[in-house]
Design a protein around this nucleic acid. Structure first.
Lengths: 318, 318
DNA sequence: CCCCATTACGTAGCACGTAACAATG
DNA sequence: CATTGTTACGTGCTACGTAATGGGG
């Protein structure tokens, strides 16, 4: 049994059982792959793929299992390489992020800019997609870390770290009628012009969805991708700002505006970082996580460590 | 990077950094091993071992990590082999048990006899040792499953399955003075002649230890390794029988004896099966566990499955 | 001075690529 | 008939074993 045989089998399985295409993507010859797979099957005494004449048609049950374990092995091999680099040139390497569109466009850019400043030699790549696509990348070993929002289902292979939860705030000019202390409902909000994040101004956003559930149509007069910008327009009297408490806490000159939390009106939003349980976290990965989620729950990290036995986590986030 | 290189590194680390000895145990030449290790170090750009002149002196921090991950990889490779056999000749294979002395001598023989009847082609091996030694075998990949008693500490790499817990019973002839219903204390028991299991008649047994803690010296007149034998001698009036409820439940002709549980006097004893989290359980392993621990907690198994993502467990114990 | 790891070197095996072949849809 | 996997074959690399070399304890 050789690592390359396992790799070939895995790759063929993830290229729609097309050996020729696999060979091309791996820059090698297709007879080579065919032969190595045959050799592996002979050695194990099990067919991994079912063949109809000369075509690969399907994966056998044994093949399914073998491919899964092979994936684990290849992951571990990648970990060894990361590990080795960690002890020599820990500021170099590869970092493959996968994030939902919203994060890619609005949350991450600032962090990634800072990251590339600190780690100019790290080959950073960002895959954008839906939450499902992002998750798929992780599971197929095509991404190291994923950033998602909202509900992520527990998956046995994956490690979930809750980064932070957002609640919405509204920003009001001091002389606004709603500053009189009355309880605010969604219905009330729908009567005033609103300034929201661009990411909240789409059909799928939890904000618009919540309004729609109550058959309300909010008047969104303006949207921006920066909390500070939103605050400025609130000061100009353009409308009520709807921001995330997290981001707004970062702005400084906010004492002139009235902040009211409306966490009870809109669902809180949890941002989650995911990775495969066996991932070895390099220094730059840990630094990225610390940067992105400085308030990460250490107790949770320790708990995950105990459960998974992931040694990469061990001293990672102390 | 090749599997053999990882294997060589792992083996050398587990042979006291003696390359020659490692070569002998692997039936290969020692220059071959030296060279492969060097090649791996070159490829990774990291020293795995520290050398003083021509001697391997120590393992570098990077080496520690690499060796650990290599061990995982080699385990997974072994799993692929098991897996393949599972789909072809599922009644063949290797089964390396490690058990404490007590289990090896008294509990297991009956089960193993039945096991070899059902699976004559499985190469069964049993390692006997202390609880610590048994655990070591597991962690070093020299055993598949371990059977231990009492307190086993949680280890991240290991899966623990509680098989059953024992409580002590005493067996009395119907005309014995203690059958009058009075509460029984250790002090009372120490006044009468006792018949116990041979395994309980040693310095390390929890039974003797508990007596000693209260500065009591029990009068053990006889010990046997079979509950039925103990019962016979109780009938003959030789003394009070002290047995495990588990085993005594298996005996039939016990209606003539008075049974009193003394679970409150002696610590309950839990028998645990352990395996590495990533172990793929073959059919015969699952059958052995079902045989040995028919009342295994299925909910616990499912919970462990969810945590570890061990696919071998998935349909294993339904 | 013995033990042990590394270096040197020759050989045998094997992985890989090119080319021809066979089977499928 | 075009696409795809398998067989055949030649070459170059490399793993492995034997023998020689060099360092440590």
């Amino acid at each position: 049994m050789k690592l390359q045989q396992l790799k070939y089998v895995w790759e063929v399985a993830h290229h729609g059982l097309n050996v020729s295409a696999t060979a091309q993507s791996l820059y090698t010859s297709q007879p080579g792959i065919s032969k190595q797979i045959r050799l592996l099957e002979d050695e194990l005494g099990v067919e991994i793929f079912t063949r109809s004449g000369k075509h690969l048609i399907d994966i056998t049950p044994a093949g399914e299992a073998i491919i899964r374990v092979s994936g684990d092995i290849l992951d571990q091999v990648a970990n060894i390489k990361r590990l080795a680099q960690e002890y020599t040139r820990s500021d170099e390497g590869e970092f493959r992020l996968a994030a939902t569109y919203t994060h890619s466009r609005y949350t991450l850019p600032g962090y990634l800019a800072r990251f590339t400043e600190v780690y100019p030699k790290v080959a950073l790549s960002l895959f954008e997609g839906t939450s499902e696509q992002v998750e798929q990348r992780l599971l197929q070993g095509q991404a190291d870390i994923a950033v998602q929002d909202g509900e992520v289902l527990p998956v046995p292979e994956l490690l979930r770290l809750h980064c932070f939860s957002w609640q919405r705030l509204i920003l009001l000019p001091p002389d606004h009628p709603l500053t009189n202390g009355e309880t605010i409902s969604l219905r009330t909000l729908a009567e005033y012009p609103l300034i929201v994040f661009t990411s909240d101004n789409s059909e799928e956003s939890s904000l618009l969805k919540t309004f729609k559930k109550q058959k309300l149509e909010p008047k969104i007069v303006f949207s921006a991708s920066d909390a500070e910008v939103i605050a400025s327009y609130v000061r100009l009297g353009l409308g009520i700002g709807v921001v995330h408490d997290k981001e707004f806490a970062q702005t400084r000159a906010d004492t002139d505006l009235v902040k009211i939390t409306i966490g009870h009106l809109l669902p809180p939003c949890i941002t989650t970082i995911s990775a495969t349980k066996s991932l070895f976290f390099t220094r730059y990965m840990r630094d990225f996580i610390s940067l992105f989620a400085p308030d990460l729950d250490r107790a949770r990290v320790r708990e995950l460590l105990a459960i998974t036995g992931n040694r990469g986590l061990e001293s990672a986030f102390d």
